[in-house]
Amino acid sequence: MFDQLFDAALLDSVVRASVPILLAAIGGLICERAGVFQISLEGTMLVGAFTAVSVSYVSGNAYLGVLGAIAGGMATSSLLAVGHVSRKGDPIVIGIAINLLAVGLTGFLLPQFFDLRGVFRDPAIVGLEKYEIPLLADLPVVGNALFDMTLVGYLAFVLVPVVWIMLFRTAVGLRLRGVGENPAAAHTRGVPVTTYQYTAVATSGLLAGLAGAQLALGNVVQFAENMTAGRGWIAVVAVLLGRAHPFGVLAACLLFGFAEGLGFRLQGNGFAVQATDALPWVATLLALVIARRRFIRLVDLTGRMA
């Protein structure tokens, strides 16, 4: 049974499931480092998926669709930037409202623009092409999973070390972390706090938009109402679990991707669909428990002051 479950095709679906979560989570970790609590990844990703499919359908070009997703994602995240960074609104409330706005707005525009409900599938929607890297793609086991992806997929994995270098080896990263850890001190040192936070939120919008494009033009070629189905929330948890460290976040995303990929596979082997639906969520909860890290730092609820 185990040889049936664990093979190259499983790795393939793990990577596929991980890419959108990873893109969104990298955006989330940049915000976290800049001191902005970003929980609107879910809605931002959904808007990205919608704009990606719409623009690709209208223009017949997948990469224009990707640009549309970036624009949609950044527009969505600008609500958080203006509302929280400038207007000092509650980031949790704004995040929740953005997520619900995205569900409502995409659900509203789908019938209004395309005269249909539920799922928008059409041959005119052009999906993202996959590019095989010669030689590497022929490697056993990992070849097909890692070296035959869309450009957005490659970008997700390349961004992990790039963001690590940016955060921990450049002046910009140092200032960004300073803004997150002590905005007053950063301000005193002449770092433009608002600019850094705006840039971080805009970047997360860009990346969550890309995540939506990968979801709707890469993993499948269609838009479905509420198709992100909690992936943006999982990205939020990945930031938490990976301690806002690029490689930690990558590991967390691969774990969720693994749970999702394994779920699909188990379903094919006759397991109840309910069990496999719950798998990524239960795995996430278990990972949080096993990590046994005190995620609540400011207030130690057992009674001692933090």
Partner: peptide, 18 residues
């Protein structure tokens, strides 16, 4: 489409929160 009601609700909260 009825989802406009959802949009309206979310915008109310956003304008208040912002």
């Amino acid at each position: 489409s009825w989802q406009l009601a959802q949009v309206l609700q979310a915008i109310v909260i956003l304008t208040l929160a912002m």
